[in-house]
């Protein structure tokens, strides 16, 4: 994997790179260079498979990280291309022209993180959620507990917190518990 990393360094000047395992390397690249790098890897270096596209919310730094994982079926090597974009009005170039299945990944990231991919079909079309009005739920600042308390009515809990006592009262003196 060191050869491909060296080539990427010479051609694209990545921000960082590392070999994670013998068949897995990672590259950090500026957003503007990401799609040219992905295109070059697909067209000229045999990384023809888009294994997945994912996003990570680095809220402390005010950034989203997009991770494209490419696979080379000849060598079975995997290359992780990471690029950080601004968290305010996040947008990235689509790769749906390169890989048809990227449409689904971009649709999901748009829904779950609020990152838009202009030109990608199905942007803004619900994928998993329906009638969602809150902030995109996979963002770190989405409060799951507050959401549940607001939208799902609570129920009265049982009076006892001690299971043995509760079962004893409900099912008789000895209950179903062994001594």
């Amino acid at each position: 994997m060191k050869e491909i990393l060296k080539e990427i360094e010479e051609r694209f000047g990545p921000i960082w790179e590392r070999v994670q395992r013998p068949k897995l390397a990672q590259v950090g690249i500026e957003p503007a260079k990401a799609v040219p790098l992905l295109t070059w890897l697909k067209e000229h270096r045999g990384y023809v498979t888009l294994v997945h596209l994912s996003a990570v919310d680095w809220i402390e730094q005010g950034e989203f990280q997009l991770t494209w994982l490419l696979g080379n079926p000849e060598t079975e090597e995997r290359l992780m291309i990471c690029s950080r974009i601004d968290r305010e009005n996040p947008a990235a170039e689509t790769v749906s022209g390169l890989w048809p299945q990227a449409v689904t990944y971009e649709q999901e990231i748009n829904e779950m993180f609020g990152v838009s991919f202009p030109g990608s079909p199905r942007q803004g079309v619900p994928f998993i959620l329906e009638g969602w009005k809150d902030i995109p739920p996979m963002r770190r600042d989405f409060d799951t507990v507050a959401f549940v308390e607001k939208h799902i009515p609570g129920r009265e809990g049982r009076k006892h917190i001690d299971t043995r006592t509760y079962i004893g009262e409900k099912f008789g003196e000895k209950g179903y518990l062994h001594d």
Binding site: T49, V51, W99, Q101
Partner: peptide
Amino acid sequence: VVPREWAFEMG
């Protein structure tokens, strides 16, 4: 039938 040329590109 899945065309062979879709195999790698689609993952």
